[in-house]
């Protein structure tokens, strides 16, 4: 047990937290960009599933991991367009669309798995490719720091670069201001000449691509195959992190990493004799407590007013 305890304070544990945190960060960034522009994207989980599956499929089809990545981005854009079409043109409740798309992705991905491989379990029989692992020259030789930040998957670095870009987009460009305006009050935004639908469309497409990349990370890095139910509610954890952050990107990122630490602890505890079914619920309990804490805080604030 002593051993286990000290292992939480090692460089390799931070490495694991980053490893399990990246798909969560993709998911929460996806939820963040869409909800900031005023269209909550509840379909993050479903888009992740499709991203994971089509990444594997296209990489097997084209024989190249980069071909797979292109397919992932394509499917992310497609799903985003469906979401955008029904919310903006058909005036459907975005939550309803999200629920429907998630169920569809969960079921249809299993059917595609059956058609492509003949089994409903995994894509192990497809000759899929994984994206490379990146060792950063020089930095990898620095003790501890090299151990923590070098040697991750390609998409890990993409994720962190995108996080910085989203921060700049939202806080330093006029477009970010427009997004926030559309989210706060679409009529006010329209009255000052912002093209609400165009801003929202772009935000949703960014959101779709981010979610799909989160899925691709799972099946083309974290694991080298797609398996049934592999996203395991990560999309929902992202949506929860976004809810806790309430429009503040830095808090969203921070919350995501708190959840990632919980997930990292779970991965470490998996080797002990503790019952795995109960251990696996730890991240969800953390999310639940985070949401409850947030609503109690809001409740007190409203009451004091």
């Amino acid at each position: 047990m002593d051993n286990l305890w000290t292992s939480f304070f090692s460089a390799s544990f931070i490495f694991i937290v980053i490893r399990v945190g990246v798909p969560l960060l993709f998911a929460s960034m996806s939820a963040y960009t869409a909800s900031l522009a005023g269209i909550p994207n509840i379909a993050v989980e479903g888009i992740m599933i499709f991203g994971a599956l089509f990444g594997v499929y296209f990489s097997a089809l084209t024989g190249s991991a980069w071909g797979g990545l292109a397919g992932v981005i394509l499917i992310g854009v497609l799903m985003a367009l469906v979401l955008a079409f029904f919310t903006m043109k058909m005036k459907t409740n975005p939550i309803m669309i999200g629920i429907a798309l998630n169920l569809f992705a969960a079921d249809f991905s299993i059917w595609l798995l059956l058609v492509w491989t003949g089994s409903k379990g995994t894509t192990a029989s497809l000759p899929s490719k994984v994206l490379p692992t990146v060792n950063i020259p020089f930095i990898q030789d620095i003790p501890i720091l090299g151990e923590i930040i070098s040697g991750h998957y390609f998409l890990t670095y993409v994720c962190f670069v995108l996080a910085v870009l989203i921060y700049i987009l939202v806080y330093k460009t006029p477009f970010g201001l427009h997004m926030k305006a559309c989210g706060l009050d679409e009529h006010a935004a329209e009255s000052v000449g912002i093209k609400v639908n165009r801003v929202r469309l772009i935000a949703i497409i960014i959101s779709g691509i981010l979610a799909a990349l989160g899925g691709a990370y799972l099946s083309m890095g974290y694991m080298s195959i797609f398996s049934n139910n592999m996203t395991a509610s990560r999309g929902w954890i992202g949506i929860a992190a976004n809810a806790v952050g309430q429009g503040n990107f830095l808090i969203v990122v921070l919350t995501t990493f708190v959840f990632a630490i919980a997930q990292g602890v779970v991965n470490r505890l998996a080797i002990t004799n503790l019952p795995s079914e109960l251990i696996n619920t730890i991240p969800y309990i953390c999310v639940l407590l985070g949401l409850i804490g947030l609503s109690i805080k809001e409740y007190r604030k409203n009451k004091a007013r």
Binding site: I95, A243, L291, I296
Partner: peptide, 25 residues
């Protein structure tokens, strides 16, 4: 507390399944 019932219910689904399966096992 006007908590977001959808995300909470989804987190509860995962927890209930984990606890339920543990009880069964």
């Amino acid at each position: 507390f006007a908590a977001d019932e959808m995300v909470i219910s989804l987190m509860m689904n995962s927890i209930l399944y984990g606890v339920g399966f543990w009880i069964v096992k």
